[in-house]
Structures are given as structure tokens and as C-alpha cells.
Design a binder for these strands. Structure first.
Length: 930
DNA sequence: TCACTGCATGGCT
DNA sequence: AAGCCATGCAGTG
């Protein structure tokens, strides 16, 4: 440790000189003696030691220096434990005082006692600290890491990491290969074994530090040496106190002294040493600095060796307190036991990686044991992370700060325990990347899957002491209010579902931290409060891809079909018709608008009807099936039933019927994700197509609709994108899909194709179409449809349904076509918009396929639908319920070959009677009603 | 053909 | 503007 500012008071003339060789006399400015043989006193900031005359040295060693030489100076306080007067305002006393978390100070004797009593085995014995570093480190080597990795390397390494001293050890252990480590060790050694001043420094944790929070019971570490000097005092429950080492560099209002918080012994890991000028820091920091891989051996001492560093990522949040918040990367290093960092400035981790774990979660991890959990960092899983590749990209700084140093790309096997206690071994490695490194954990798939994580969820890395194990917890994205997710403490984390009120473990901590978003959070829990920066920094930062996950996942978790179903041509649309591959494609300048979800049923007469809920009164009103109500539909727009054109009008449906209606609707969706193979496939397919749909719906680059899958597409994806993702064949099984395949994907593709074909046919001969339709209807005796529904296509597709009144009548294609034909629009084509079509990608089933292909497709489709109906049919009784299309959601694709919901907009509000020929599904569509 | 590996690319902070 | 890092994708087995 070095001298501090106060040092100057003692020895102004010598201050500038860092050389102990300069002997002008006793270092004590209050002493006139000129010792022949100087004795070492406190450590100066420059790493050297004050040279004192015998008398002063004796006083110093006896712990009487302050009272002897500046009893009247400011900065005297009483030990909170024993009441003894202790000086807190000079470099000499700096080492003999511990600042308590609760305020006040404690003499070293008391602090030491507490420390010694502390049952926490995590802390190394003071004696251990006294051992020359070389001794402690001699066995350490990179191998250790490897070995540990294989077994409990982490634990071993970190076991002693808690204390600064240990840190040194840990560091050494971690970086045995680095020469500088040795230097570091030396430096530390000096601190530990050297002259007393050096030993002093101990710590105290800051309550603000999340880590500390966890380790609130942290003990204060007092160097043995100090104890010797020490002042006796009463014991103070260590657990309840956190001390802060007094440092010359900073002023404590209360004490009028400079001090700084240092890593507490137990949680030193989390504390943040300052990189300020304090000698202590110097010693500690140096080692860290040395850790820098790019750095050569570092100097053991010297202020210069302690450049000011940004707070460590974790420490930062913690910093808030009286401290200036200046944290040194050192601390990070200390905590991790792995102080490396390319540059100190970089030690600071991005806020998005700051661990946000609640006490409860920590408790969960540690269980009832006395384990101390040290949150290290967290990361929201990207699509890649959660993908099958099994590679979890680790934030560089986090990897370098908390994982063992690796010099070879191959890295090391790293043992990680999940929240359930199960151990996993990942390969911690890196790839050279732009003159840097990209760290990854390989082989995480099993773990990720076991935790059922997906993109958007967050994994947290913590360390359990004294075991020193790495623990990987997780937090499901869905557990947290989307908007608050970023900011709030996970309700459940570390894989331990908790009620843990998402209170930030310690609001004060986070809020104070910085602008990174915590502040905002503190201010408001509401979405609005969500710090945009924060948000963007997490999901958003790199990814628009992920951005949608949380918020949108919930609100926009609609199927591709559902989304399209709700699309409505923009008002006053004026589509441009372009020819693409011989097909007329309508282009809309305006983005489509979103319509209102409805539920389709079939009444007793076999007429299709749809139910829509009034925006104002929430009553359900019956509308012609082909009406496309807008999103803000209200009773007043119910021109079809004047009696119920006001909100005051009673609802036509009975409560029971409504329940059935709604339940059917709600149950439909779940089915979608359920697991028949086909369903699953369908889901996948729809997800895979989401991109297209999203793009179509939201416009290029704006994929607001997220697939149910957290995975997102690369931002570069654009309509027509030919990347591997976009050109991916259905379900990624291209070749495996046979022509007769009836999987959702194939059906979808066929449907799309069919749509095109139908249009063509339509164009070719309206008359023929009409004829065909009638023919189809006759053949299949499709269920009754409204008079307007004379879509020939419909009949073809719905042949099956026709046989079963209860089956959904809707067939996307059919309906779609029906609508087209029915639509008021003078031109069958006019007003049609097929957002599902991407000319560039229509290559799958070529639009130009012949009718034979069409037939095959239809046949396959029908077979599939038949099967679906059979399997899903069976409900009867309530007209509504029964008629609501079962499995709507799950098999949507298959069943929706047509757009049941009207393409014709009869709604007064729908001034745009345009048919949207989109593959659709309406989760709401229903079947015949009796 | 597919899974895996490792580097390259480029959006974003 | 540098660097991070999510993802792409070629190479390999």
C-alpha cells in the first residue's frame, strides 16, 4: 500500500519521492529524529514503506502512532465494537480501521476478531495469507484449471478467491503461465506478508454490491498483522456488518477521512477495489493489471500501476454508495479470480450482462447451505445460443473476467452446475475473431434443453462458494413482464421458479448504478419506464431479431395464418398490379391494416356466421361470415342487425354459448403447439414462414410479428433473401417431402400455389370457374354456405367438411377464392392481395404447375383434412362449441386452405371490400352451426 | 446428406 | 470508430 494524500501531512517533503532510499529523517513529519537505522512503517502509495525512527516505528507497530502524533487531528472516531478511539484520517490509521456497512468504524482488533470467528470457511485463514505467494502458488498452473475444469476446477480456484489475498492466489492459479502473475504475487505478497501497512487493507463490502448483497454475511478480513497491533474490542457479529477499509484517497464525510470500499473478504469477489491512488489498490490492482494478457509483467507497486479503472461490470452496480463509484477492474479480477482484461478500461461489462438475481434466487441456488452465491453475469440467449449448434456465445469480457484464462482456441472443459445441481461440462473456448476473440461455451444444448430454454431467455452464471462451483441458472423471458424484463429482477431465476418478486434485489443498488437503465427502472416499473437504452442493449442491441421476443412474443404470438387473417387492405388502397412470372400480383403501397379477430361458426341452417366482439361493450355480435371487421369494431357498426347495433342491446349469445365459443377459440391455439407430429411440423412450418408473413405484414425490415419461437431471423433477411434460413425448405426437410406429403408446410406451399393457380384459372374463365364451383359443390355437397358463397373452389376444398357438418367449412383456398369471387369488387382480382406470396420464392411449387399437380395437391390436402376431422371430430352438443373448428390453432395450416373469413368486406367500416387471398387460418373460424 | 467446426461477415453498441 | 457478437456459411468428416 502506499501512502496517500494524508501521507503528505506526515511527510510532505518526501511525498514525491517514492524511493525509500531517500532518507531525510523519520518519515513522520512530526518527528524530528533522524534515525540512523530506519524502520519500516506503513506502506506508501508508491509501494514503498515509510521509514521511521525507532520511536515512531514502535508507536506505529504498537498501534499508537496516531494517538501519539496527531491526537488532535480530525478523523477520530470510536470503534463500534469496543468503543476504542480510532483514527480514520491518515494513512497510518487507514490500515487499522474497518468501515462498517452500517456506518461507523471498527478497530482492526475487533474486525479481526469478527473475522476470525466467522464460520465461513470460504475465507482463507489469515495464516494462509501469510504464506509467501510463491508457496501458495507454486503448485498452481494452468493445469489446475484444466483439472479443475474436469472436476471442480472452478471451485478450487475460487475457493480462495473471496479475499483479495486469495484473489491473488486465484489469479495466479488461473494465470500461472503468465510471468506477470508472479509479479503480481509478489506485489500481493508484499501486502500480505510485508510490512504491516500493507496488510491492512481489508475490506468491506458494499451493501450495494449485488454480490455483497448475497454475501451480506461477509466477514471483515483483518490482516493478522493488524490484529497484532490491534485494539481489542467486542465482538461484532460479522454477518451483520460489512466493513470498509479506510482509504486515504477518499473522504468519508463522517469520518473526514478518505476511504474506499474494498472487496469484502468473503465476497471480495464482488467488491470493488478502487483503482484510485491508494496504495492498497496499487498492490491489488497491479496484479490485475498484470493479468492483462496483453500486458507484460506488471509492476508490483507504484501508483502508476494502478490506473484508474472503470468499475467492473458487476461491481459497478454495486458501487453506488458513498463511494465514488470508481471501481477498478481489479475487483473484477479479484472476484473472478481471473483478472485479465485486455485493457483495464474494458473490464467494465456492459449492463446487459450484469447479473440480476434476487436474493431468493440466490437462496435457491445455495439452498440451506452456507454457500455464498456470487452472481457473475448473465446473458440473454440469442437464437444462436439456443439453437442446435450448442454453442453459447459468451460476452468476451465476462468470459475473460469470470472464466479461466485460455490461451488456446481449444480452451478448456468447464464444469458448470445447473440450478438443479446437475453438473454439465462445457467446452470453454474461443475463436480468433478480428484480432480479438469470441468466447463460446460448447456443448450447451443438453443443458439448454433440460432447462427448456429458448432464445430470449436468460442464463445466469454465478459462483457458489466455498465450493467455488460455477452455477448456471436461468430466467425465462416469459416470467417477466416484457417491458420490465430487462430491468426487473427475474421472478424466477437460476432455474428456480420463484415468486421472487421481481424486486430488484436491491433497488438501491441498481438504480444507483448508472444510466444504463437501472435508474429508469427504479423510477417506474412500467413498461414505459423501461429504459430504452437498457432494452436495446439487451435484446435490442444486436438484435432486432430478439427484440420482439419478449413483448411481442406475448402479444403478437399469433400464427402466421392468424396474422394474415387479420390483415385488411389499407383504406383507399390502390393496388398496383405487377406481373411476376406470368402472375398478376397486387402491390399495395399502404401497409395492410389489422382487422379484428372473429370466431366463425355455422348456424343451424348451415350458414356460416362469424362472431365479433364489440370494442366498447365487449358483447359478441353476429356478422355475415364474409365480413371483415376492423380492429375497432363496435356495435354501432353492426348494420346487419339493427337490433343489436348499439352496445345497450343484449347479447345474442347466452353465457353458456359464449363460453363455449370462447373456450373453443382459446383451445384452438394450444392445439397448435401440441404434439402430433403433424401439428408440430405445422408449427415449425408456420414459424418458418413467419418471416415471410411478417415481412409481408409489417413491411420490409419490420418484423413485428414474432413467431412463437424466440428465434429470430437475421436482420439481413429480406423478402427474397436467399440465405440459408430463408431458402430453407419446409421444415428443413426439403427432399423428404414427397409430393403427396400432407405436412403443414407442404400444404401451405400447395395452398399458395393453388391460390395462384386458381387465380389463373379464374382469369382464364370466370365462367369456367363458376361452373367448376357448382360442380364441386354438387360433388362434395359442401356444407351450406351463405348465399353469397358460391365459390367453386370452396367446394373443392371443403368436400370433406361438407360431409361433416361439424367440420370447419373453411378452407383457405376455397374461402379465399370464394371470397374473391364473391367480393363486391367488380373485378375478381381487384382488391385481392396475397401477402403470402413472395414471387421471388414461389419456386417451390411452381405457379405454372399444371392442373394435374393441382389435383394431387388437392387430393392430398383433402386426405389430410379428412384425417384431421376424423381425429378431431367428436364433439357435439352445443351448437357453438361443436361447430367451432377443433384444433383450429394446431392444424390451422392444414385446415385452412381458404380464407374463410371473408374476403369480402361488407362491413360498413370496411370500406375496402377487398379480398385478401391469404392462406389463413383463423383460429376463430368455426364450423357449421345447427 | 447432414452434423459439426471454425472463420467471416456485418449490424449494432 | 473500434470492437463485440449474432449469425452465416464454407469446409470437413
Amino acid at each position: 500500500m502506499g501512502s496517500h494524500k494524508n501521507e503528505k501531512e506526515l511527510r510532505p517533503l518526501l511525498m514525491s519521492s517514492s524511493s525509500s532510499s531517500v532518507k531525510i529523517g523519520c518519515f513522520n513529519s512530526d518527528c524530528e529524529a533522524k534515525p540512523e537505522r530506519s524502520r519500516k512503517g506503513w506502506r506508501l502509495r508508491n509501494g514503498q514503506f515509510a521509514e521511521l525512527c525507532d520511536r515512531c516505528a514502535s508507536a506505529y507497530e504498537g498501534g499508537r502512532f496516531c494517538e501519539t502524533f496527531h491526537l488532535d487531528a480530525a478523523g477520530w472516531r470510536s470503534c463500534e465494537s469496543c468503543g476504542k478511539r480510532v483514527h480514520c484520517g491518515c494513512i497510518v490509521s487507514f490500515h487499522a480501521v474497518a468501515l462498517l456497512d452500517a456506518g461507523g468504524v471498527e478497530c482492526l482488533a475487533c474486525a479481526n476478531k469478527n473475522f476470525i470467528r466467522a464460520p465461513n470457511p470460504v475465507w482463507p485463514s489469515p495464516f494462509f495469507l501469510h504464506l509467501p505467494l510463491p508457496e501458495r502458488l507454486k503448485d498452481l498452473s494452468v493445469k489446475n484449471w484444466n483439472q479443475f475444469a474436469g472436476s471442480s476446477a472452478v471451485a478450487a480456484q475460487w475457493r480462495h478467491a473471496p479475499s483479495l489475498w486469495n484473489t491473488a492466489t486465484a489469479l495466479s492459479e488461473l494465470h500461472p503461465r503468465m510471468p506477470y502473475e508472479i509479479d503480481r504475487s509478489n506485489g500481493i505478497d508484499k501486502l500480505v506478508c510485508g510490512e504491516r501497512p500493507s496488510a491492512s487493507a481489508m475490506e468491506k463490502s458494499r451493501s450495494e454490491d449485488p454480490s455483497e448483497r448475497v454475501v451480506s454475511s461477509s466477514l471483515k478480513f483483518v490482516p493478522p498483522e493488524r490484529v497484532a497491533n490491534g485494539n481489542a474490542g467486542d465482538d461484532i457479529p460479522v454477518e451483520t456488518k460489512k466493513g470498509v477499509i479506510v482509504e486515504p484517497g477518499k473522504n468519508t464525510p463522517a469520518a473526514g477521512i478518505n476511504y474506499e470500499a474494498h472487496p469484502s473478504v468473503n465476497m471480495s469477489v464482488q467488491s470493488t477495489p478502487k483503482d484510485d491512488m491508494s496504495p492498497l489498490h496499487v498492490d491489488f490492482s497491479l496484479p490485475h493489471g498484470s493479468h492483462n494478457e496483453t500486458n507484460g509483467p506488471s509492476n508490483v507497486s507504484g501508483p502508476q500501476s494502478q490506473p484508474q479503472m472503470p468499475p467492473s461490470a458487476i461491481a459497478k452496480p454495486l458501487m453506488a454508495g458513498p463511494h465514488n463509484g470508481v471501481e477498478s477492474s481489479v475487483e473484477t479480477l479479484v472476484r473472478n479470480g481471473r483478472p485479465r482484461g485486455d485493457t483495464r478500461g474494458r473490464h467494465q461489462l456492459l449492463p446487459r450482462y450484469w447479473p440480476r438475481i434476487t436474493d431468493q434466487e440466490l437462496q435457491q441456488i445455495s439452498g440451506d447451505s452456507n454457500s455464498v452465491i456470487t452472481p457473475l453475469f448473465e446473458k440473454m440467449l440469442s437464437a444462436s445460443d439456443a439453437g442446435r449448434i450448442g454453442r453459447l456465445v459468451l460476452p468476451k469480457k465476462c468470459a475473460e473476467a469470470y472464466f479461466p484464462a485460455i490461451s488456446q482456441p481449444e480452451g478448456l472443459p468447464l464444469k458448470v452446475q445447473d440450478a438443479r445441481g446437475k453438473e454439465w461440462v462445457f467446452q470453454f473456448r474461443f475463436w480468433p475473431n478480428n484480432n480479438s476473440r469470441m468466447y463460446v461455451l460448447e456443448g450447451v444444448t443438453p443443458c439448454i434443453q433440460s432447462m427448456q430454454l429458448q432464445a430470449g431467455d436468460t442464463v445466469t452464471f454465478s459462483r457458489i462458494d466455498p465450493e467455488g462451483k460455477l452455477v448456471m441458472g436461468f430466467r425465462k423471458a416469459s416470467n417477466i413482464p416484457p417491458s420490465d424484463q430487462e430491468m426487473q429482477t427475474p421472478k424466477s431465476g437460476n432455474g428456480v421458479p420463484k415468486n421472487g418478486e421481481a424486486n430488484l434485489a436491491d433497488p438501491s443498488v441498481w438504480s444507483k448504478v448508472d444510466k444504463s437503465g437501472y435508474i429508469a427502472k427504479e423510477i417506474a416499473g412500467a413498461k414505459a419506464s423501461l429504459p430504452t437504452k437498457r432494452k436495446s442493449s439487451t435484446l435490442g442491441s444486436k438484435s432486432k431479431r430478439l427484440r420482439i421476443e419478449n413483448e411481442d412474443l406475448i402479444e403478437l404470438k399469433v400464427t402466421w395464418e392468424e396474422a394474415q387473417e387479420l390483415l385488411r387492405p389499407p383504406p383507399d388502397f390502390d393496388p398496383n398490379v405487377v406481373m411476376i412470372e406470368g402472375q398478376e400480383i397486387e402491390e399495395y403501397v399502404e401497409a395492410p391494416i389489422i382487422g379484428k379477430p372473429t370466431i366463425f361458426t355455422i348456424n343451424q341452417l348451415g350458414l356460416k356466421i362469424q362472431w365479433v366482439q364489440c370494442e366498447d361493450c365487449s358483447k359478441w355480435r353476429k356478422l355475415p361470415f364474409n365480413v371483415l371487421p376492423r380492429s375497432k369494431w363496435t356495435c354501432s357498426k353492426n348494420s346487419w342487425d339493427p337490433k343489436r347495433s348499439t352496445c345497450s342491446s343484449p347479447q345474442e349469445l347466452t353465457t353458456e354459448q359464449l363460453e363455449d365459443l370462447l373456450s373453443s377459440k382459446s383451445t384452438a391455439a394450444p392445439k397448435k403447439t401440441k404434439a402430433t407430429k403433424q401439428v408440430t411440423e405445422a408449427v415449425e412450418a408456420s414459424e418458418g414462414l413467419d418471416t415471410l408473413a411478417n415481412l409481408a405484414i409489417l413491411g420490409e425490415g419490420e418484423a413485428l410479428l414474432s413467431s412463437s419461437q424466440a428465434t429470430t431471423k437475421h436482420p439481413r433477411h429480406r423478402p427474397g433473401c436467399s440465405c440459408i434460413v430463408c431458402i430453407q425448405p419446409p421444415s428443413g426437410k426439403g427432399p423428404k417431402h414427397k409430393q403427396t406429403c400432407t405436412c403443414n408446410v407442404c400444404l401451405t406451399v400447395r395452398r399458395r400455389f393453388r391460390t395462384l393457380m386458381l387465380r389463373r384459372e379464374k382469369r382464364q374463365s370466370e365462367k369456367e370457374a363458376e361452373t367448376a364451383r357448382k360442380k364441386e359443390q354438387q360433388l362434395h355437397q359442401s356444407p351450406k354456405a351463405e348465399p353469397e358463397d358460391d365459390d367453386p373452389l370452396l367446394s373443392s376444398n371443403t368436400s370433406n367438411s361438407s360431409s361433416n357438418p361439424k367440420q370447419p367449412l373453411v378452407n383457405e383456398t376455397v374461402d379465399d377464392e370464394n371470397l374473391n369471387s364473391k367480393k363486391p369488387s367488380s373485378s375478381p382480382l381487384k382488391g385481392q392481395i396475397d401477402l403470402n406470396i413472395q414471387p421471388e420464392r414461389e419456386d417451390e411449387p411452381s405457379p405454372t404447375s399444371d392442373s394435374c399437380s393441382m389435383r394431387l395437391i388437392r387430393d392430398a390436402t383433402e386426405r389430410y383434412l379428412r384425417g384431421q376431422r376424423q381425429s378431431s371430430s367428436g364433439s357435439d352438443g352445443d351448437p357453438i362449441t361443436d361447430q367451432i373448428e377443433p384444433g383450429r390453432g394446431g392444424v390451422v395450416e392444414e385446415r385452412l386452405d381458404g380464407v374463410p373469413c371473408g374476403s369480402v368486406n361488407l362491413d360498413g367500416d370496411m370500406e375496402h371490400p377487398v379480398t385478401l387471398s391469404m392462406p389463413m387460418s383463423t383460429s376463430t373460424s368455426t364450423s357449421a352451426t345447427g
